[in-house]
């Protein structure tokens, strides 16, 4: 793949990765991609498919961290979706619920969430209790606030090795950045030409 021209914005992720994060991939991978996204955002749905493809092509060298950034004023099911994913995560099925939600292309309701919980074999009573807990919603709001403090500037926002990258959420751009970082990870040359999104 041709190396991409990249623009690494000098905005650094401040919200540290912890064991509470949703992670996929080798913990000792040379690259870590942190994604902040909203389950009803069209660009995030595109981003979901791009990241899934990226995990297929580069998953052996990439640790993926997904964090919620629900835009509740605009997307009424964004927070219920985030709560459902985290509640499923308490039973070890975060990524499956996450995929179900994104595969719904932004069109899902409470009945879908309950159906997915049954299909995943969750303890649905416990799942319901967890996803309706105020504590879990507060945790998600805190993740979102910490993301905003770190420089999240839209959904989705990606940080690659702690640096924000402003790109269209498509596989070719993500893969281009990943290739660039893998090439230059030792020499610190992580800047290039701008690829600002269209206004």
């Amino acid at each position: 793949m041709a190396e991409a021209e990249v623009d690494v914005d000098p905005v650094e992720l401040e919200a540290e990765i912890t064991d509470d994060d949703h992670m996929r991939g080798p913990r000792d991978a040379p690259l870590t991609l942190v994604e902040y996204a909203d389950y009803q955002c069209e660009a995030c749905i595109t981003g979901f498919h791009a990241v899934e493809k990226l995990m297929e092509t580069h998953g052996d060298r990439l640790l993926l961290v997904f964090r919620h950034f629900p835009l509740m004023s605009y997307h009424p099911m964004a927070m219920p979706g985030a709560l459902a994913a985290d509640a499923a995560g308490k039973q070890g099925r975060f990524w499956e619920m996450h995929a179900n939600i994104f595969d719904a292309d932004g069109e899902f309701d409470d009945d879908d969430i309950v159906r997915w919980a049954h299909e995943l074999g969750l303890d649905v009573d416990q799942f319901d209790e967890d996803r309706h807990s105020e504590e879990l919603e507060q945790e998600i709001r805190q993740v979102r606030l910490d993301g905003a403090r770190s420089g999240v500037n839209g959904t989705p926002t990606f940080f690659l090795n702690n640096r924000r990258i402003d790109i269209p959420p498509e596989h070719e751009y993500l893969a281009g950045y990943v290739e660039h970082f893998l090439t230059h990870i030792g020499d610190g040359d992580l800047r290039g030409q701008s690829q600002a999104r269209p206004s």
Binding site: G151, V152, N153, G154, A196, R197, P198, S199
Partner: peptide, 8 residues
Amino acid sequence: LGKSPGAH
């Protein structure tokens, strides 16, 4: 132009 400033 073309960049979102975020809120940080």
